[in-house]
């Protein structure tokens, strides 16, 4: 049994969406309830840069692999497809 590697990108997309929503709410809270000051701008900039930094770093790592390649389940889980004798 084989499956393409890009299947793993689906749960990853859900994680990206979830963390993106959390990041948005953090930025929203600071922008709406923060005190009008230069520090607030710095905090907002820090949030955006930190999140973008992680995304760029991840994109560089993820982009190095061929996600259309397929992989056999037996390569990942060696016991799949073999008869396991429990010896009971």
């Amino acid at each position: 049994m084989t499956f393409p590697l890009w299947y793993f990108l689906i749960p990853y997309a859900v994680v990206l969406l979830g963390t993106g929503i959390f990041m948005f709410f953090n930025v929203y809270h600071i922008a709406k309830f923060g005190i009008e000051s230069f520090t607030t701008t710095v905090v907002l900039l820090f949030y955006v840069l930190m999140y973008l930094g992680v995304l760029v770093f991840s994109a560089a790592l993820i982009g190095a692999y061929n996600w259309s390649a397929t992989i056999a389940l037996s390569d990942v889980l060696p016991f799949v497809g073999t008869n396991v004798h429990l010896g009971l």
Binding site: Y12, L16, T19, F22, M23, N26, H29, M50, Y51, F57
Partner: peptide, 20 residues
């Protein structure tokens, strides 16, 4: 790589929540 990226995103969000 995906696990590492997920972990880093979660750490970034935790850091933001603590700063907020």
């Amino acid at each position: 790589t995906l696990i590492l990226s997920t972990y880093l995103l979660v750490v970034a969000v935790i850091t933001m929540a603590q700063i907020s």
